[in-house]
Design a protein around this nucleic acid. Sequence first.
DNA 1: AAATATACCTGACTGC
DNA 2: TGCAGTCAGGTATATT
Length: 270
Amino acid sequence: MPELPEVETTRRGIEPHLQGQRVERVLVRNASLRWPVPDDLDARLSGQRIRQVERRAKYLLIRAESGTLLCHLGMSGSLRLVDAATPAEKHEHIDLVLANGQALRYTDPRRFGCMLWVVEGEQHPLLATLGPEPLSNDFSAPYLQAKAKGRKAAIKPFIMDNAVVVGVGNIYASEALFSAGIDPRKAAGQVSAAKLALLVDEIKTVLARAIEQGGTTLKDFVGGDGKPGYFQQELMVYGRAGLPCHTCGHELREVKLGQRSSVFCGACQR
DNA sequence: AAATATACCTGACTGC
DNA sequence: TGCAGTCAGGTATATT
């Protein structure tokens, strides 16, 4: 599932191929994503040049001349460049056909993603309430300490809350909490200031390392499968319930927090 | 206001 | 072999 590092890797992979290119047309084979793909998308975007590709949280913002294509990969989505003549397979729902004969192809088997149009100068409601970017200076120890104050929600769902900090999904939340030695069940307001500061560092570290690996081990965004090097990094707890902790050997436990499975070490995380 | 539950969807896996 | 059932998971939204 694309987490923030995969989205950033995708951004870096596709931007060089899109920048300055003119969109010839938009081919929508299946418009039923999380929200319907606007039926006037082709009319809105065709003929325009793509200026740049940005990222906000796990959203990709493909900036064109009169507006922005707002794209989310959901859990199973991916984007890659193909020759526009390449026949589309089952879950390849959308093509941004470029004037140079290539196409940016959107694939999403589970259709949890979205592809929306935002008119230039407007802000989409989806982006309005997002918290700070985890790798920015706005996401700091003082910020998280203030935000956590008095909060009774468990720390894991708390840091997965997009209003607190964006882009921290189940995998990286689990891994960062392990690295910081924090019990994922502990109320956010009860975690010490020192541990919250450590958590901020660990979130930044785990995400930055994953992006770095994405840049090296990565995938082929042109012609290839377009799948970033998902989860190349060694996972300490995620998906390892019942197995021994890599640090102390204690058997890793699994609990549900906010409907999400959470694996942790009862000895290392307190 | 905050916490919790629900819905969306389908591939992968489990058990019969 | 095949079928039915379960689960995962990001995030908006509804409900308590």
